[in-house]
Structures are given as C-alpha cells and as structure tokens.
Amino acid sequence: MAPPARRARSGYWLLAIPTLAPLLTPLYDRATPMLWGIPFFYWYQMACIVLAIVIISGVHVANQRSRGLGR
C-alpha cells in the first residue's frame, strides 16, 4: 500500500482534463450537431462546466477520504 501522502496526490492529474477541454477550440468551433436547438459550440462549453464540477468534486472527496477527513 502507498503512503498516505502518495495516495492523496494520485488523483490530481485528473484536474488537467477540465482545464484542457475548453482550450481545444478547433474541436468545438462549429454549430452542428445541435442539441435542442442549441449549437454545439455552446453546449460543449456547458458540458465542460459539468465535467469540471464532477472531476473536481471527485478529486476533492477522494483526497478527503485518503486523509481520513471524510465520513
């Protein structure tokens, strides 16, 4: 088993995903496909926000548990 300090840092690389996803502008610089009439450009950015919330929350909870601060 890894030492507690190592386990706490192991998930931080996941934080790069919500940082890099909105920076890939050529990937989402288009209007199609549309979702409920909303162009892809806008709903991709909203999906990036939801993705960031999920990943940041997951890393936070995992780190709290590894430090023994969680329930």
Results as ranks from 00 to 15, higher is better:
P22L: 03
G70V: 00
A47L: 15
G68Y: 12
L51Y: 06
A47C: 08
Q45S: 07
S57L: 14
L15F: 00
S10E: 12
T19Y: 04
A21D: 04
C48E: 03
R9Y: 06
P4H: 01
F41L: 13
V59M: 06
F40L: 01
I53S: 00
F41V: 11
A5M: 05
P39H: 01
G68T: 02
Y12A: 13
R7F: 02
F41D: 09
Q45F: 07
P4A: 01
V54Y: 03
G70F: 08
M34W: 05
I56W: 07
M46F: 13
T32L: 11
Y44F: 15
M1G: 07
R67F: 00
P18R: 01
R7P: 00
S57K: 11
G68A: 06
D29F: 09
Y28A: 09
N63W: 07
G68L: 04
L69T: 10
A47T: 09
W36K: 01
L14V: 05
S57E: 12
L20H: 04
A21C: 10
W13H: 08
I55M: 06
Q64R: 15
C48L: 02
S57W: 14
L20W: 10
W36A: 13
R65A: 12
L23R: 13
W13G: 10
G11F: 14
P4Q: 00
L15E: 08
N63Y: 02
T32F: 07
Q64F: 08
V54W: 05
F40C: 05
Y28T: 10
T25S: 12
G58S: 02
A47V: 09
S66Q: 14
A31W: 14
L51W: 01
R9V: 03
Y44I: 11
Y42C: 06
L69E: 15
G37V: 04
P33C: 08
W13Y: 10
L20S: 05
V61L: 14
R67Q: 12
S66N: 14
G70Q: 05
Y44P: 08
R67W: 00
I17A: 06
L27A: 13
I56H: 06
Q64D: 01
L51N: 01
R6P: 03
L14N: 06
A5E: 09
S66K: 11
I38N: 04
L15K: 04
W13L: 08
L35I: 05
V59G: 13
A8I: 14
G70E: 05
Q45G: 12
G37L: 00
P33N: 11
R30T: 15
S10P: 04
P33I: 09
L27T: 08
R9C: 04
L15H: 05
F41M: 08
W43D: 03
Y42E: 13
T19R: 05
W36F: 13
A2I: 02
W43G: 00
S10H: 11
L15P: 02
P39W: 03
S57D: 13
M1N: 06
A8Y: 13
A2R: 12
G70A: 08
Y44A: 08
M34I: 03
